[in-house]
Amino acid sequence: MGRHLDRAKAFFGRDTNGLLEGGRYSLLHSRSLEFDDLRPYVPGDDVRDIDWKATARSGDVLIKRFVSEKHHKILVVADAGRNMLGLSPSGERKADVAANVIGALGLITLRRSDQIGMVFGDSRGCVDIRLRRGETHLEYMLTRYLDHVRDHPGRSDVLTQLRWVCEHYRHRHLVVVVSDEPDTGERLDAMLSRLTPRHDVMWAMTADHPIVSSTDDDIGGYDVDGGAHVLSGVDLGFDVVAAYEEAEEARREALWEAMTTRAVPYAVFEGSRGIRSGLVGMTGVFARAG
Rank of each mutant, 00 (worst) to 15 (best):
D239W: 04
G23R: 00
K9Q: 04
R150Y: 08
L87W: 07
G134S: 00
R111Y: 12
F12H: 02
L142E: 05
Y244G: 14
G221K: 03
R155T: 15
F238A: 13
D79A: 12
V165R: 00
I63S: 03
A228D: 08
V76A: 11
P40T: 05
T261G: 11
A56D: 05
K9M: 04
G59V: 15
P182R: 01
C166F: 00
A207E: 14
K64H: 04
P197T: 03
G284N: 05
A10C: 01
G290Y: 02
L195R: 00
G284I: 07
G22K: 03
V212I: 15
L85R: 08
V240D: 02
L27H: 06
L75G: 04
D49R: 01
I108Y: 01
A204G: 13
S90Q: 01
F11L: 02
Y41S: 04
T196Y: 00
G271D: 09
I116N: 12
K70H: 13
H168L: 04
V77P: 04
R24H: 07
G274P: 11
M118L: 11
G274D: 13
Y25D: 00
T206V: 15
G59C: 14
D114T: 11
R57Y: 08
V165G: 00
R133N: 05
S179V: 15
S90E: 01
D37I: 12
I219A: 11
H229S: 13
R198G: 05
E21Q: 09
G2V: 08
F66Y: 13
V285G: 03
L188T: 13
V77M: 07
P89I: 03
G23Q: 00
I63G: 06
S193T: 15
W52G: 11
D36E: 10
D151T: 10
A250F: 11
M282W: 02
F286W: 14
Y145C: 03
I108S: 02
D60I: 15
G284R: 10
A207P: 06
V201C: 07
R262C: 07
E92L: 01
L38K: 03
V61E: 05
I102M: 14
I275Q: 05
E257C: 14
M259N: 04
L279A: 06
C126R: 07
A254C: 06
L192T: 00
S58F: 09
G81Q: 12
S88Y: 03
R3I: 12
L110F: 06
G117P: 07
S213T: 15
P153C: 04
A287F: 00
R24S: 08
H152T: 15
D79Q: 10
V264W: 05
G274V: 15
P40S: 03
A99V: 08
N100Y: 00
R251A: 14
T136P: 02
H168I: 12
L107E: 12
D147K: 08
A254T: 11
L5F: 09
K73N: 12
R170Y: 04
N100A: 06
R132A: 12
R130H: 10
S68Y: 03
L5N: 08
G2K: 06
G106Q: 02
T160L: 03
S179G: 11
F12K: 01
S272P: 02
E253W: 08
V234L: 13
V101K: 04
R57P: 06
G117Q: 06
P210R: 09
D235Y: 13
A254S: 09
D60C: 08
I129N: 07
L162F: 00
G44K: 00
S232R: 10
E245T: 15
G86K: 04
L110K: 08
L162W: 00
